[in-house]
Simulated scan of single mutants.
Amino acid sequence: MAREAGVSVSAVSKVLRDAYGVSAEMRDKVQGAIEGLGYRPRTGARSMRGRTFTVGVLLSDIRSPFAPEIVEGVQAEFEGSAYQVVLGPGGPTPDRQQRSIETLIDSNVDGLVLIAPNVPTARLEELADIVPVVVIARHGRGRNYDSVVDDDAMGAALMVEHLADLGHRRICHISHPMGELRRPSVLSHTARADGYVAAMLERGLEPDVVTTSYTEDGGYRGALEALGRANPPTAVFAGADIAALGVLRAASERGLRVPEDLTVTGYDNTNVSAVPQISLTTIDQSGTLTGSVSARLLRERLEGRDAPVSYSVTPKLVERNTSAPPPAS
């Protein structure tokens, strides 16, 4: 193909990977050769690769306390095998994530596990033509890649049910920006917010979504906004445990007791949520199970499976000490 296009082999590789620094002229030459030769990237790209027994894991958000639990599950599944796990720190933007992915591919990893990537769906399909890919926390089935997701709508409904049964009617949900993705191929936070809205409407309650970020500061800012209203919520359901920690900080600054004055809940059931001093009511989606299933699916791909598989983790409510009925007043 490089001879047909009149460019180098590395240039062809860059175009196939949609790498940075590729001129429009070079891209046109390679695309013309692809069409002229009837080239199929999946077969060609994989047949040219040698096995390195390394697996790349993209950490889209290195600040997330949930990501390390996924990595633990991946490593546990590969324990005792010849495979080694290579971590690639990504970032909040598609560009930064793509650069990290390209670095992993340039390292000749045999497969990729992408945790919450917000790169375009078309790009995910292209990546899966180069190496086997398993995508975590991205809803919507892929044609070429496998996916592992939490049933976020169910998890959000479980939390709304728990809070409504306690007597709460003003339940605020703190979410994360949707970004440029569109349904059905969205990340877990969007599916989680959708599930919250549907569950609230089903019970005749008015949804109240504050969009900040899945960070401690994001939860703090979202809680200050909600609690500063004339008619503030009696419960704040943060879409991630890390954001719930920020809600707890905001409640403390405002002199509110949890759960006597304000109920605070999260999502993920990270290790910190079980610390006695925090004891956060949350939704468990088993990060280690997510990681181990992802690694198993990747191994199946490496052993020859081509048909895409989508696996859904069943969430469960973990009730602790930060949720209680609303104040009588």
Rank of each mutant, 00 (worst) to 15 (best):
A2M: 07
A2D: 05
R3T: 10
A11I: 07
V12A: 11
S13E: 10
L16E: 02
R17I: 07
D18A: 15
A19W: 03
G21S: 05
A24K: 13
M26H: 03
M26G: 00
R27H: 02
D28N: 13
G38Q: 08
G38T: 05
Y39M: 14
Y39D: 06
P41E: 09
R42D: 11
T43I: 12
G44P: 07
A45G: 04
M48E: 10
T52Y: 06
L58R: 06
S64W: 00
S64K: 00
I70C: 04
V71R: 04
V74T: 06
F78S: 00
E79A: 15
Y83V: 09
V85I: 10
V86H: 08
P92F: 13
T93L: 11
D95H: 13
Q97P: 07
Q97S: 02
R99E: 15
S100L: 02
E102I: 14
I105Q: 10
D106I: 10
S107A: 15
D110V: 11
L112A: 08
L114D: 03
A116H: 07
V119H: 03
P120L: 04
R123Q: 14
L124V: 15
E125M: 07
I130P: 00
P132A: 10
V133I: 06
I136F: 05
I136A: 05
I136V: 15
R138T: 04
H139L: 09
R143P: 00
N144I: 03
N144V: 11
Y145A: 14
Y145C: 10
V148T: 05
D150H: 04
G167Y: 04
P177S: 11
M178L: 14
G179S: 01
L181E: 13
R182H: 11
S185Y: 12
H189G: 04
T190F: 09
T190Y: 06
A191F: 02
A193G: 04
V197W: 01
A198M: 04
M200V: 01
L205A: 09
E206H: 09
P207D: 12
D208Q: 11
V210C: 11
T211M: 09
E216D: 11
D217L: 15
G222I: 07
A223K: 02
G228L: 09
A230R: 14
A230T: 14
T234Q: 02
V236Y: 03
V236F: 05
A240E: 03
A243Q: 01
R249C: 06
A250P: 03
A250D: 10
A251N: 04
S252I: 05
E253M: 05
R254L: 15
T265S: 13
G266K: 00
G266H: 01
Y267T: 00
Y267R: 00
D268H: 01
N271K: 12
A274R: 00
Q277W: 05
S279C: 03
S279T: 01
T282L: 01
I283R: 00
I283L: 03
D284Y: 00
T290F: 07
G291C: 01
A295R: 08
R296V: 05
E300C: 02
R301K: 07
R305A: 12
D306I: 13
P308Q: 12
Y311E: 15
V313T: 11
V313H: 06
T314M: 14
K316V: 12
P327S: 13
S329E: 15
